[in-house]
Design a protein around this nucleic acid. Sequence first.
RNA 1: GCGGCUGUAGCUCAGCGGAUAGAGCAUCGGUCUUCGGAACCGAGUGUCGGGGGUUCGAAUCCCUCCAGCCGCACCA
Length: 599
Amino acid sequence: MLPFCLVWLAQISGQERRSQCSGARLSTMASTYELLLAPLRAAFDTLEPGADPVLRTSEHGDYQANGVMALAKKLGRPPRDVAREIVDRADLADLASVEVAGPGFLNLTLRPTLIQDQLSALLGDDRLGIEVAPARTIVIDYSAPNVAKEMHVGHLRSTVIGDALARMYRFAGHRVIARNHVGDWGTPFGMLIEHLLDVGEDEAVASLSIGDLDSFYRAARVKFDADDPFKDRSRARVVALQSGDVETRRLWKILVDQSITYFNQVYALLDVTLSPEDVVGESHYNAMLGAVVADLDGLGLLVESDGARCVFPPGFTNRDGDALPLIVQKRDEGYGYAASDLAAVRDRVEALHADEILYVVGAPQAQHLEMVFAVARLAGWLPEHVRCEHVTFGNVLGADRKMFKTRGGETVKLVGLVDEAIERAAASLRQRDNGLDGEGQQRLATQIARAAIKYADLSTERQHDYVFDLDRMVAFEGDTGPYLQYAHARLCSIFRRLGAPWRPVHVTFGLDALQERNLALALLAFPEALEMSFVTFQPHRLCVYLFDLAQRFTAFYDACPVLASTGPLRDERLALCDLTARTLSIGLSMLGIDAPEQM
RNA sequence: GCGGCUGUAGCUCAGCGGAUAGAGCAUCGGUCUUCGGAACCGAGUGUCGGGGGUUCGAAUCCCUCCAGCCGCACCA
């Protein structure tokens, strides 16, 4: 059996945890972990104020407190003596039995009554111990594809992680404003519009509407590089676009609208909650850029350098050790993305009243965003109380461990990836007999495919680089989304066979079988698992938890017959099944993964 | 050069101050008239990149070296 997945909770115990949660982002019922921690901390405090019990889950007991050794060292006393004293002083009698082990570990075994009470509380709670938090307004910036460019695997992370965070925040009770900061502005639009004119509007729309964005872009690029008159026209067109020429604007809008229509198809295919109203691209901030520059100037922050208008936030240097500028207005008087990013921060605080802004953007943008945040703070557009975080994620790498390039012909379209996964899921379904009709099969294949892709992305640590591996993404066995769905489907099957709806009444949790107890302990850990995921912006923590839960369930399922059992035992097992099914379903929903009832 | 990230089993990855370093895949062996086998049980595999240091205790913290990736003034 796996060590309990809750170990990482130790990381955010005590003060750190409280301070990280200062925004009241997730409220939970008194969790098992917290119930144990409080008396332990009190006992430690009597010997050394502020000493940390270092409570965590363990293979050597249900929980383990490791803080005694450090405390003993500090006190200059034998650790086992200190351990015994802590045991005497800690008011744990109703909660757990404690045993001193090894050099001074405290191994805690939960009392059956505690498990009983905690499980009963979860059983009667639709939200599984997660309370609705006082609402805060959270702006989450994610996905952000470029107009007239394909969505490829590089966009998957931002889209899927951002959407998972949005769902988690919504479940926690917050007001989420999604912002899809699409790249709909800048110099490439000159050549794109000219190309559109060359091929004709109807032709262009036809090609873009079928999602053939890359070849459109590539064709424009080729002409731009090889054809000087075209290049001149393109440059003139950029000027016309920026100066608000009506006809140019209309042509530009065609490109934007077609692309957004296409993006929405991809979002629908992936079941991403982004809607057209969430699309607020770079162009949206155009009207605010003049004020950004003027106000920075008024604040005395603007410095002219090499003809460009810049802000030099303290603490940033370039390769020569000189101060590094954030260029808000270029020498040619055009605005760069720094200006629109500043305008966006300002808009999100002033117009949207954000309490918190999250940027789900790749790690290469880290310095740029830090500078933008720094300048926004300097300008007073980003007050202290507004939390602003760059939720980074690693690069997408190819099999050669080098940056996954869009050029070089090995582009993997996002839709291509999903199609491949659907194809494989459908093939797998054809070998089963689940009684679904063709349409149902197709819908199910799509749900399974999405689960495979999203889980593959979400289940790895966000900040690490990401080796793109199609077979892994589309796999259905082992530590995968479909494995979790399957566990859920089996649970639903039990209740389906039951015939009548099952209502929990006075369930007694004996938990005599090891597998029952293992499962129960995992169920109690859901609030912490979600909290960890939430506080660290790491959906993969939730993935790890859910996989562990599903594994414990299948071990239980294998060893403990539910429907064949009778009396209180049957109710107990049904209750464990009910809790497991709901935990899986709610957990998966926060990852943006459906939990079908059969598959 | 400065800054950031990464280096853990054959492969893909967890673990990030605690007791013998874990999963999944792959390999081998079992369960096999199934509350749905996309499952379960078991087996083997590791100088946790190298070297120092801190600590009762280091994959985890610090220093250093090696290897790789990313960023570092007008593309976004």
